[in-house]
């Protein structure tokens, strides 16, 4: 973070278009917001007899990683560096971590 010199200190100047706090309602909800819910929240079933929770382990590495994973895996699926047969958790996590991007991904999900 860059520190401005004391002389440059600014008073908050309200922008002409926003004298009052504004509200934005995004019709297109970000993929992140949907993923956060779908992957991290909701009811779960535990117990190894009946139900298997497959693939979800990835989410514990962090939401950013999953956002990347979805994009990355799509690339991998078309003959990329990783085949689906070798999606062992550690392997995927390592590869995803290395390929992590901070670019926000937006989905075209209409609310």
């Amino acid at each position: 973070m860059e520190l401005a010199s004391p002389r440059q200190r600014l008073r908050p100047v309200p922008r002409a278009s926003a004298l009052r706090s504004h509200v934005s309602r995004q019709r297109r909800v970000s993929l992140c917001e949907t993923l956060d819910r779908v992957l991290n929240k909701g009811a779960v079933i535990t117990g190894d007899i009946v139900i298997s929770v497959a693939g979800v382990e990835l989410v514990y590495v962090g939401l950013n990683l999953v956002v990347t994973s979805v994009e990355t895996m799509r690339n991998w699926a078309s003959g990329g560096p990783l085949s689906f047969d070798d999606t062992s958790r550690a392997g995927v996590a390592d590869k995803l971590a290395a390929s992590r991007e901070d670019t926000p991904v937006r989905a075209g999900m209409e609310m």
Partner: peptide, 14 residues
């Protein structure tokens, strides 16, 4: 939102 200064951006979804 109207009771907050301009620097606050409110964003709601649902």
């Amino acid at each position: 939102a109207g009771t907050f200064p301009a620097q606050y951006l409110f964003d709601f979804s649902g």
